[in-house]
């Protein structure tokens, strides 16, 4: 019994310790935002890797989700004779929830893994040590550019995803569910409030920060050898995804709780 309690205690303590070290890591990253030197080229490179190259996967995900959402809401709404809500619910569901969460998750899969693998490999091949001996702070050179780029790029990806998702809903609505094109668009626009959209973009920024921070953190903590890098990559994706869901709930409470 005491053994059991002790093992629970140890697990709790080690969980708390990793929460603390992630928090310190995030704080240190942000602190470098205010202390030169800055590595502009690394930032641009990260922006392209994280933002531009994620567009196809985020766009496709949003497109199919928007279409499926329209079908589901139509089916659900028809039970109450409320099929007319399809455009507005698709739009609100997309911009408030699905756009940011799905966008964040796709970026987590694509970006957290590649950041963790890249930095982890640099760690095990002593490239991080080499950076230090060349008077370059790895947090400034590797971490800050990626975290900053993701925090800026993911909201943009979310905005694109929102639009593409609404378009997917529109195409299904007009072609499969016999909505009038002009009515669909009017309903979409009329019921959408600015805060619906901006709250989703804020979420996107938070998720971008989470994804890149977890990628860098686990990469930097990577154990030795290929196995270490593999474990770091897995931890980065899993922790980024879970944290996205947790942060999504907390932000939704903050933004929309009555």
């Amino acid at each position: 019994m005491t053994r059991f309690l002790a093992s629970i205690g140890r697990a709790v303590l080690s969980a708390l310790a990793s929460v603390g070290s992630v928090a310190l890591f995030a704080l240190e990253t942000v602190s470098h935002l205010f202390r030169p030197p800055f590595y502009g080229r690394e930032f641009w490179h990260a922006l392209i890797q994280i933002g531009w190259l994620s567009l196809p996967v985020v766009g496709l995900t949003a497109f199919f989700t928007g279409g499926a959402l329209a079908l589901q809401i139509f089916a659900g709404g028809s039970r109450y004779g409320a099929e007319a809500v399809v455009p507005s619910i698709v739009a609100i569901g997309m911009v408030r929830e699905l756009g940011p969460v799905l966008g964040g998750l796709m970026v987590a899969a694509r970006v957290a893994s590649s950041i963790a693998a890249e930095i982890g490999t640099m760690k095990v091949t002593e490239q991080i040590d080499a950076l230090v001996t060349l008077s370059t702070n790895p947090m400034k050179y590797l971490t800050l550019p990626r975290v900053l780029a993701a925090t800026i790029a993911v909201p943009v990806l979310v905005a694109v995803g929102d639009s593409v998702g609404i378009m997917g809903g529109y195409l299904v609505g007009v072609n499969r569910l016999d909505f009038n094109s002009a009515t669909y668009l009017k309903n979409t626009v009329d019921f959408l409030e600015t805060w619906d959209i901006t709250s989703g973009l804020f979420k996107g920024a938070a998720f971008g920060f989470i994804v890149a921070t977890m990628g860098c953190y686990h990469g930097m903590q990577s154990g030795r050898g290929a196995q270490g890098v593999g474990a770091a990559t897995k931890s980065a994706v899993v922790s980024a995804s879970v944290l996205i869901f947790a942060a999504n709930y907390i932000l939704t409470e903050l933004f929309f709780a009555a």
Partner: peptide, 28 residues
């Protein structure tokens, strides 16, 4: 200081000359 690592520890994302000139392209 200058340091040659046992495994060379070259930065594989940049070409050879930028590896060599790393210190000469940034900082002091």
């Amino acid at each position: 200081f200058g340091m040659l690592f046992q495994g060379a520890a070259l930065f594989d994302s940049i070409p050879v000359w930028q590896n060599v000139a790393f210190r000469l392209m940034r900082g002091a």
